[in-house]
């Protein structure tokens, strides 16, 4: 039986991808950011997940304004890195897991989550930066990846409650897959940042850390945070944190924190990173 063994949250700032691609991860600016991922790189070498369900948002790369799916799941064989305006990142192709992806897609639809199915697309920094942060620079990615793209750009974006519930449904779907697979779920994006308008540059260390606290243990309070609170407290792009709730929802009633890292700033953004494991209640 397939099982979700860990949940990882991480920012996915494009500049981190550039730092990796240009070999700058140890310099004065990036060193403290990447240092907080060393623990996780070792963890991943031990855990060797078979599949990562990678929750992210597309930043006007695979989807333009022609089609805006709220929740979309990648069921394809493989995905190439997108050209975001300065050439594609030089990273390995991302290998999918169509069997598990289609199983999850079907299960979710029967569970009343009306998913969009994607068979072909390119993946942008939202997906490839977390892979680089957790796996470094291998010749090929050590795990299969199921992309799960969430609209967090055009409003209304899905509510926190809906994201959490989708995570719960993903948890049930994975458990009903007969093959013995070690599956992780990653929630990416955030933390506080605003990339637009005169208020750009907003960061909120205190709120971000309170949010991380709420993903640990048995509280589900975070699912009720309203969109306006993310915008007021963490900036317009802080709304990406609803994607962390899909990861958290998939881990079940209770979690334990294995690793935690926070750093300000990376370009315009606060970097947050959590490694959680599901913990049986009681």
């Amino acid at each position: 039986m397939a099982r979700i063994t860990a949940g990882i949250a991480s920012s996915h700032v494009p500049l981190l991808g550039m730092a990796v691609d240009q070999g700058k991860t140890g310099d004065d600016y990036f060193g403290p950011i990447f240092a907080g991922y060393e623990w996780t790189k070792d963890f991943e070498k031990q855990e060797k997940p078979d599949v990562v369900i990678l929750v992210y948002n597309d930043h006007a790369s695979a989807f333009d304004m022609k089609i805006v799916p709220t929740f979309a799941i990648g069921c394809g064989e493989s995905y190439k890195s997108a050209d975001e305006g300065f050439g594609p990142r030089p990273v390995p192709d991302v290998e999918g897991h169509p069997d598990l992806a289609w199983h999850i897609a079907q299960s979710l639809i029967l569970d009343e989550f009306d998913m969009t199915i994607i068979n072909e697309m390119e993946v942008d920094h939202g997906l490839t930066v977390p892979l680089s942060m957790m796996f470094g620079t291998p010749d090929e990615w050590p795990a299969r990846v199921i992309p799960l793209a969430v609209n967090v750009v055009t409003y209304p974006v899905p509510s926190g409650n809906r994201c959490w519930a989708l995570g719960e449904a993903i948890g049930r779907a994975v458990e009903s897959f007969p093959e013995d697979l070690n599956v992780q779920i990653w929630g990416t994006g955030g933390m506080s940042h605003q990339l637009q308008g005169p208020r750009a540059g907003l960061l909120n260390r205190e709120w971000d850390n309170k949010f991380m606290d709420l993903l640990i243990g048995d509280t589900d309070e975070a699912r009720w945070i309203e969109h306006i609170e993310y915008i007021r407290e963490t900036g317009t792009e802080g709304i990406e944190m609803v994607m962390w709730l899909i990861m958290r929802g998939a881990l079940g009633k209770k979690t334990r924190c294995l690793h935690r890292h926070y750093h300000i700033p990376c370009s315009n953004t606060a970097i947050g990173h959590l490694v959680l494991e599901p913990k049986p209640a009681g």
């Binding site: 300065f86 637009q196 308008g197 005169p198 208020r199 540059g201 907003l202 700033p265 315009n268």
Partner: peptide, 30 residues
């Protein structure tokens, strides 16, 4: 060929140098 931060800073009251300094000092307070 601009960095994201430089373009973003152009929307604020700061020039790029001052914007970077603000970010390094913890960003804009809410």
């Amino acid at each position: 060929g601009l960095s994201f931060a430089e373009a973003v800073s152009s929307m604020t009251e700061h020039n790029f140098e001052d914007y970077k300094a603000m970010m390094a000092a913890g960003g804009r307070s809410p």
